[in-house]
């Protein structure tokens, strides 16, 4: 019998294929985190219900595509619509009336949404048990030239769609009229209002786009994990960790952080079979990020978190 350490060294041969999975997962985190950062920057609210919105929308896609057998792309569209509708509902019904209230109150309201969506989904779809994933692309793939690493077309699609949408959001903020308005509201809502920007409309747009992105992330991640109402709701912590790496403001850095997180979550699995390693990695990365990136007052300088 091999010594355990030597046995675990054989994990190195797994690294190339784990890189592929890690990148795919990281792409999905990037998408979720970008939505989170967009909402935080424009409306100043840390959305703790982000994962729950993704979860609920994903289960709508599951109901349509897996249970009812309608093509996946329609399920995805329905999920995005659900996500955007939820984002609008949260902003219009509960965030807008709380303008000027302490950040703690706004956080509490997003927690309430988390609880409502989580319980509702559990009642509708059952909180545990196996759910078949929403497969957008077939899982056959190709071998990377000169190596024996197999990349699934689904993995490639997930990565490209997720990273494309994340970077697309950066482009939207930079070059479109809505993007400029969003940045104006993010920098100073009152000045933006004076300049004739409809702050409420821009804020609602950020919630709808951000939540729609969460929905896409939720649907894309279904083939990657054994998904249920709980595991998708706690996606929020992965999004948070990536967003923290981007200081809750910098979108390209958030994408980089998300991909780093995906890899860090997957590499240890090549060497150890212990359950919960992803959570351990996320926890470690979150602590390191908080210790290194944030200094007193930095993240709160806007004062409206």
């Amino acid at each position: 019998m091999l010594h355990p350490v030597i046995a675990s060294l054989s994990g190195f041969s797994l690294l190339p294929s784990y890189t592929v999975i890690g990148l795919t997962l990281g792409g999905v985190y990037a998408l979720a985190a970008t939505g989170l950062v967009l909402i935080y920057r424009v409306s100043g609210v840390l959305n703790f219900a982000h994962g729950a919105v993704a979860m609920f929308s994903t289960f709508v896609a599951y109901q349509i595509s897996v249970v009812a057998g309608v093509p996946s792309i329609i399920g995805l569209a329905a999920a995005v619509a659900t996500g955007a509708a939820l984002g609008f509902a949260i902003e219009f019904l509960t965030i807008r009336p709380l303008t000027g209230r302490p950040p703690l109150t706004k956080v509490a309201v997003t927690i309430a949404w988390l609880l409502v969506l989580q319980t509702a989904a559990g009642l509708i779809w059952g909180s545990t048990g196996y759910h078949r994933p929403v497969q957008l692309v077939g899982s056959n793939g190709f071998t990377v030239p000169l190596t024996n690493v197999v990349v699934g077309y689904d993995q490639l699609t997930i990565f490209l769609v997720a990273v494309g949408l994340s970077l697309g959001t950066s482009a939207l903020l930079r070059w479109t009229s809505l993007g400029v308005q969003m940045r104006a509201v993010a920098d100073d809502p009152q000045a933006a209002r004076l300049w004739g920007i409809d702050v409420d409309r821009v804020s609602a747009a950020s919630w709808m786009i951000g939540s729609g992105m969460a929905a896409v992330a939720g649907v894309l991640i279904t083939p990657l994990l054994n998904f249920d109402t709980y595991s998708l709701t706690v996606l929020v912590i992965d999004a948070f960790t990536a967003a923290l790496i981007g200081r809750l403001t910098n979108l390209p850095l958030t994408v980089v952080g998300a991909i780093l997180l995906g890899l860090v979550q997957y590499y240890p699995k090549a060497f150890f079979s212990q359950a919960g390693l992803s959570e351990l990695s996320t926890f470690a990365l979150a602590i390191i990020t908080l210790a290194v990136v944030f200094r007193p007052g930095l993240a709160t300088s806007r004062g409206r978190a």
């Binding site: 840390l46 703790f48 950040p103 703690l104 956080v107 706690v234 929020v236 912590i237 948070f240 960790t241 923290l244 212990q274 359950a275 919960g276 390693l277 959570e279 351990l280 996320t282 926890f283 979150a286 602590i287 908080l290 210790a291 944030f294 200094r295 007193p296 007052g297 993240a299 709160t300 978190a305």
Partner: peptide
């Protein structure tokens, strides 16, 4: 060194670390 909201984020990480790593069989 952290503001209250970031600390709240950290407590989620702590909660998931506890119930999905620390208390899992084998850890």
């Amino acid at each position: 060194r952290l503001s209250g909201l970031l600390l709240a984020v950290l407590t989620i990480a702590v909660a998931l670390f506890t119930d999905r790593f620390l208390l899992v069989t084998g850890t």
